[in-house]
């Protein structure tokens, strides 16, 4: 498994069915060097954002450049395990998800009124009915737990 170690970000590259998976670990910022990643040519790149701890505006710009370079090679991109900080960029910045890309799974904050338990729940975009998050059972007390965000804003990236 090749691994690319950059100043602020480490990227493990694993072959998966139909392409490659990029597992990111660290911060996406101005130190991201995209040339090292564009070389892994494939039809599909699955990006795993699980361990991304920070993303700043310059990182967003470098990331968009990477996505454009992959798109120019005809590569399709899928995003997995997007934490809240990544969902914010997805919703806010034009081009953060390229045209031929999609957010497959992402985290949403959930809150239980009964026991004040806060959880990050992994949701699958295709399983949502429009921009409505499901009610779930609280992981701590079993009561009903609901999404702790304004759905029309947080789930804005999901097609209506």
């Amino acid at each position: 498994m090749p691994s690319v170690k950059q100043k602020s970000l480490e990227i493990d590259i694993n072959p998966v069915d139909g392409g490659n998976e990029f597992c990111l670990r660290g911060e996406i910022n101005e130190d991201l060097i995209i040339d090292e990643l564009v070389g892994f040519k494939s039809d599909l790149v699955k990006v795993n954002f699980e361990e991304v701890s920070m993303i700043n505006s310059c990182g967003v710009r470098e990331w968009i450049k990477l996505m454009e370079a992959l798109a120019n090679q005809g590569c399709k991109v899928q995003y997995f395990n997007c934490p809240q900080i990544v969902v914010q960029q997805v919703n806010m910045v034009t081009g953060f998800v390229p045209n031929q890309g999609e957010v497959v799974t992402f985290y949403a904050p959930y809150f239980c009124e009964d026991c004040d338990n806060e959880e990050k729940v992994l949701l699958t975009s295709s399983e949502l009915k429009g921009r409505t998050a499901p009610e779930l059972k609280c992981g701590s007390c079993g009561s009903e737990s609901e999404i702790d965000a304004m759905e029309d804003v947080y789930l804005n990236f999901i097609p209506e």
Binding site: S57, C58, V60, R61, M92, V93, T94, G95
Partner: peptide, 13 residues
């Protein structure tokens, strides 16, 4: 909500 392609900052900070 669009990044800048000019040198310097990304323009969305």
């Amino acid at each position: 909500n669009e990044v800048s392609d000019k040198a310097g900052g990304a323009g969305i900070g």
